[in-house]
Structure formats: structure tokens, C-alpha cells
């Protein structure tokens, strides 16, 4: 972890009464920089926030958006909850699998995409909803999958 990331984590810690409150934001800072939360990265976060490594790892493992394994350059989340299911997300997901050649939870061999299913993204009016990195895509159809992925190199 770079000194800049450590600085940022220390700044975050200052926003709260107790420094442990900054743990989730700190883990995101580290994850954004390192790509995923490797044991070494977790150790650095623990050290910077002066928290036990056991606690830091335990907390990180609880939440779905912390990656404890390497992920692709772009993470694609396809919502599969009820509203999206009633709007055909399964077909979108199948198409994604076809185009990427991986199953949910996996990363393409070229390291470009990781495919994941998501619980309700709070965008049901746009079902089926897809999140690529920080961009939300509305009412995605199977036909749109390929051009959509093409935008992410």
C-alpha cells in the first residue's frame, strides 16, 4: 500500500469518533489501489488503523463488495433479484456468460472482466439492471450485452 493510501486512511479515521469506523472506507481505498484485498493489503490496513488483523479480515469477509481474491479490471454485476428476474435477467446473464466465457464468480482469462450476480441494486424501474464498475446500465437486453461490454477495454 502506498503512503498516499495510508494518508487517505488516516484522514478518513479523523472523520469518526472511533477509528474503527473508518475500516470499511479504508478497505475500499486499499482495494481501489491494489485491485483486491490480498493478505498483505489487509495487514497494511490493520496496521494503519491499528486494529487486529483478525478483526480486519473478519469484517472484510462479511461484505460482498470486498474482493479477497483477484478480480478483473472491470467488475460486472448483473442483478438477479425479483424485479429483474421478472424482466428476464436470466437471459442477460446467460448472454454475459456466453460473451465472456465464464460463469458468475469467475474472471475472464485475459483479466478484463469479472462476472458477478447481484442482489437488488435499487434500480428496479430499470430492470434488468447491470452495474459495470461504477456505471449503472438500465433495461439491458441480451442483444445489448456485447456492445455494452465493448465499451470497457
Amino acid at each position: 500500500m502506498t503512503e498516499r493510501a495510508r494518508e487517505e486512511i488516516r484522514r478518513l479515521a479523523g472523520l469518526y469518533e472511533h477509528r474503527q469506523s473508518a475500516l470499511l472506507p479504508a478497505l475500499f481505498v486499499a482495494q481501489q489501489e491494489a485491485g483486491y484485498l490480498s493478505p498483505e493489503v489487509l495487514e497494511s490496513v490493520a496496521e494503519t488503523l491499528e486494529l487486529p488483523l483478525t478483526e480486519v479480515t473478519s469484517v472484510a469477509s462479511f461484505y460482498g463488495l470486498f474482493y479477497l481474491e483477484p478480480v478483473g479490471r472491470h467488475v460486472v454485476h448483473v442483478c438477479t433479484n425479483l424485479s429483474c428476474m421478472l424482466n428476464g435477467c436470466q437471459r442477460v446473464l446467460s448472454r454475459m456468460q456466453e460473451v465472456m466465457g465464464v460463469r458468475p464468480g469467475e474472471t475472464t482469462p485475459d483479466g478484463r472482466f469479472s462476472l458477478r450476480t447481484a442482489e437488488c441494486l435499487g434500480a428496479c424501474e430499470e430492470a434488468p439492471a447491470v452495474l459495470v464498475d461504477e456505471d449503472r446500465w438500465a433495461a439491458v437486453t441480451p442483444e445489448e450485452v456485447e456492445p455494452l461490454l465493448d465499451r470497457y477495454r
Binding site: 442482489e119 437488488c120 435499487g122 428496479c124
Partner: peptide, 11 residues
Amino acid sequence: DEGEPGTFKDR
């Protein structure tokens, strides 16, 4: 946190 499936008013 708006996580309840089908809820999107807060967003």
C-alpha cells in the same frame, strides 16, 4: 442502505 428488493425510492 436501500437494499430491500423492489425498493428504489431513496435512490
